[in-house]
Design a protein around this nucleic acid. Structure first.
Lengths: 333, 333
DNA sequence: ATGAAAGCGCTAACAA
DNA sequence: TTGTTAGCGCTTTCAT
């Protein structure tokens, strides 16, 4: 059916070794033979059978990317960048969705392994430290995003505490005094970090931490942001600013404010987190923390590839990638 | 390193054949042996090497999904659904991004093939009919979305003409007389279809087709929608309604209207296409055509799998999946 | 019902 | 510099 190395060899009148050498860019091939092989290659339209090559090499040639859901804009954007970064280095990526549940995350981690992929980038939502005990059959893992889980595994993330602090400091700098937060969720690692940054910034601005101004969010989706904002607006003394732990929550909050006939940022200023593409086009456009997602994707791919090739054998490291505060209309109408 | 069939066989004191039989659920294995094999399997934590299995079977076990970009919400959502549908049937999916350029689409199609994947779902943007000439090395292909390309290949799509017509009829039914369109682009297949539906609906409503009310869009991104809307609003006699060929364009249009201090739907009613999740939360929420994306994903996966297994050997077919008009605030403030 | 062995397409150690 | 050949881990005849 498909053209094999042997077919090419026969056509070129050389051995498979020589063809293999040419295909793999081995330098020492007699020019005459190289020419004939290349001709045969072109004539047959030969394409190496990756499965066979990798079986022989003890590699699969694939990486995995584990994320909650691709229809969450942040992960859609990130996945796109990861694919691009991987492709540049000649890797194919298998994307696995977990829906953010611990069980699916554990299953997925277990299903990964040397027989399927050579390495994986994982963005866990609910995994605990113990879940990593020789998971994934020992292939190199790189954790994406900051999490409470304290495991000796490579990580790439922005400084969530500082980012949250920056966002809230911006609000305080605008003269807002009742700054709420939406997104507290003990089950999520990043929630802890962002809470910490929130508290630090309040303290920096000599504002006190008010329990009732911190709204939980079960999921970081738009509808939950809207619901949380409604609750906040029902307070006897509603907030004059809100820091949302991601843009989806912020977009929901934006709607809730509009539905009350209130103004953003006039009555309530809003800051998000992630800089989803949609956030630049909401009405009003959303001020948000903009992580450098391309840098994140590239650093992660780079790291996992170096681990696979054994190029880097140092202890697990944490790479911090940059972020910026993107100021838009939702705080400076 | 990893546990192989041979290791399990040795531990269980049987031949690899017997282990293979157990692993593959072959019925006729002596209960005693089955028990011992299962014990050995559990003790070693054996996981089959997919590469080797597929090499032997002449399969790869992978499907490909070719899309322009994952950070476009429609494709992020669709990809997530495709992954889910594929997983249910035990397939892994390789996602390939083309950025919507014809060249990358051709390259990708060529890079696919029996050595990499067993079948592919492709959502082309710029491909021409000729580009499909024995592309992808003869593996089963399923086209996603409607396109101008007329090739004898399986397809899954909604009825774009009818959908567009429905959207515009809705606008006309609201009493709007100057209904514009944003998104004309001869290079894109769906553009033709949506233009046709637009014209049909105008004619149904006894409105004449006005060339200046049809705005082109190079890319179907938010910024292009905003630019097109601005141009439309600069017209001596601006439109009182706009049909955008996707939600991204509509979101951009929404912003452009807001920036002028005009009202949606008061001054201009807007309808989109795709029903991205964000469209339910924009201010105002967007009326849009909502294709049943889950049905699309499932039908496509189902079809390609049946072709691969040879279960379906009929001539290429076109499967139509349902859509609905989702009426929201942007047309009924 | 199960074992022995061939071979999927490829790479690489070993020879020549 | 190039040919020969042994596997990579698995499935699957063909025997038994």
């Amino acid at each position: 059916m498909a053209v094999t190395l042997k077919d090419v060899a026969r056509l070129a009148g050389v051995s498979v070794k020589t063809v293999s050498n040419v295909v793999n860019g081995y330098a020492f091939v007699k020019p005459e033979n190289r020419r004939r092989v290349e001709e045969a290659l072109a004539a047959t339209g030969y394409r190496p059978n990756l499965g066979a090559r990798n079986l022989r090499r003890g590699r699969t040639g694939f990486l995995a990317l584990m994320v909650p859901e691709l229809n969450i804009p942040y992960f859609g954007e990130l996945a796109g960048l990861v694919l691009t970064a991987a492709q540049k280095l000649g890797w194919s990526v298998l994307i696995e969705q977990t829906q953010g549940t611990r069980e699916r995350e554990r299953e997925t981690l277990a299903s990964l392994g040397p027989h399927l992929v050579d390495g994986a980038l994982v963005h866990p939502e609910a995994l605990r430290a113990g879940d990593f005990r020789d998971a994934a059959g020992g292939i190199p893992l790189v954790l994406l995003g900051e999490h409470a889980v304290d495991v000796p595994i490579d990580r790439v993330a922005i400084d969530n505490v500082l980012a949250a602090r920056t966002a809230v400091a911006h609000l305080a700098g605008l003269g807002r005094r009742r700054i709420a937060a939406i997104g507290r969720n003990p089950a999520r690692g990043t929630s802890e970090q962002r809470m910490a940054g929130y508290r630090e910034a309040l303290s920096d601005a000599h504002l006190s931490y008010v329990e009732e101004l911190v709204a939980p969010a079960e999921k970081y989706h738009r509808a939950y942001g809207a619901a949380a904002m409604q609750a906040l607006l029902d307070l006897p003394e509603p907030p004059d600013a809100v820091f949302c732990f991601n843009d989806l929550l912020a977009i929901g909050a934006l709607r809730a404010v509009a539905e009350r006939g209130l103004r953003v940022p006039g009555d309530v200023a809003i800051v998000g987190f992630d800089n989803n593409e949609e956030s630049a086009f909401s009405v009003p456009a959303l001020t948000t923390i903009a992580p450098d997602k391309a840098a994140l994707a590239e650093a992660a791919i780079d790291l996992v590839c170096r681990r696979i090739t054994g190029e880097t054998a140092t202890p697990p490291q944490t790479v911090q990638t940059p972020f910026a505060l993107e100021v838009r209309e939702s705080t400076t109408g």
